[in-house]
């Protein structure tokens, strides 16, 4: 990889840690003398987010909403994420929904990772059980919310905001394969869902986000991390998919929405590129998806 002329460190500064159930790697590609403060701000930001939105900890706001109906004043950062969920809920006929939390938990993906499937209760319609007015969430009855579809991408964007506030100009943030890079070209291998030692292509990203989704990890019994609220099963028609978009919130959200809605319909509302590997290993990608794939002609 050609090194940036601004790159003054022989090795990028790299911060690695585990948070919100995945591995993070944050790299800074320029000389920066406040790395200690930066690291502290990042970890505080992630902790604050987790404390509100995690369904895996009993002291979160989400856990409280699962116990009690009522009005919950959410932090200001909630609005962009809720708005995206609301929009994708509508565009997927309710298939992509934060109300999938109870179904995931019933299927065994619960706070204690029991992975023991129980009968899945039906998933309620959004308007029947809750409203969100841009600040306050009103739960008409206790509901278990799950922000696994877009929450991690959104948190990556929030960490990117910390980098900007700290005047870092060249960096990348990788949370378990969902990535934002700013000012540094990354060659991102697109993991073969059947063979973790292989990739099916390489995407080149310089600015913006790439997020992926596949059913090969977080898999148990007959389920993976995406459950269709209508059929109460995990979709099998897609083996893996990737989305590039200006923000990780949009890329991550669409990486789930594409299980439920055709790309063309979503492209009327969002600026993104995509690649979908189907269960028969056929690949469909948008013309602008910035990757080279390994196929019959390579």
């Amino acid at each position: 990889m050609p090194s940036s002329p601004r790159l003054r460190l022989s090795q990028p500064f790299s911060l690695k840690f585990e948070a919100i159930g995945t591995s993070w790697t944050i790299e800074v590609y320029e000389a920066y003398d406040r790395l200690g403060d930066l690291q502290k701000s990042i970890q505080q930001r992630i902790a604050a987010f987790d404390h509100v939105y995690s369904r895996f900890r009993a002291d979160s706001v989400v856990a409280q909403i699962a116990r009690e109906a009522g009005n919950y004043r959410l932090p200001d950062d909630a609005a962009p994420m809720f708005n995206l969920y609301q929009q994708l809920y509508d565009l997927t006929d309710g298939a992509m929904t934060p109300l999938i939390g109870q179904a995931l938990s019933d299927a065994g993906y619960d706070a204690s990772y029991s992975l023991q499937p129980m009968p899945i209760r039906s998933v309620p319609a959004w308007q029947e059980v809750m409203t969100y007015d841009g600040a306050t969430l009103t739960a008409k009855r206790p509901v278990l919310l799950d922000f696994g579809a877009a929450g991690k991408g959104y948190l990556i964007d929030l960490v990117a905001q910390i980098m900007v506030q700290a005047d870092v100009r060249h960096y990348s943030i990788d949370a378990g394969g969902d990535i934002v890079t700013v000012g540094q070209t990354l060659n991102v291998g697109l993991e073969h869902p059947d063979n973790l030692n292989q990739v099916i292509g390489v995407a080149q990203i310089t600015q913006g986000s790439i997020c992926g989704s596949a059913g090969n990890r977080r898999r148990w019994a007959t389920y993976h991390h995406v459950i269709d609220p209508h059929s109460l099963t995990s979709p099998k028609h897609i083996k893996a998919l990737w989305v590039t978009a200006p923000t990780a919130l949009v890329a991550d959200g669409l990486a789930t929405a594409l299980y439920f809605a055709p790309a063309d319909s979503l492209r009327r509302y969002f600026e993104f590129e995509y690649a979908i590997m189907h269960e028969d290993y056929s690949l469909v990608s948008s013309p602008g998806f910035p990757a080279q794939f390994f196929g019959a002609d390579s």
Partner: peptide
Amino acid sequence: PFVVGKDINDITLSRISGS
């Protein structure tokens, strides 16, 4: 095309994206 895999050791990669 049907996609095929290439060994990650044979390619220069900065990151990996998947599940």
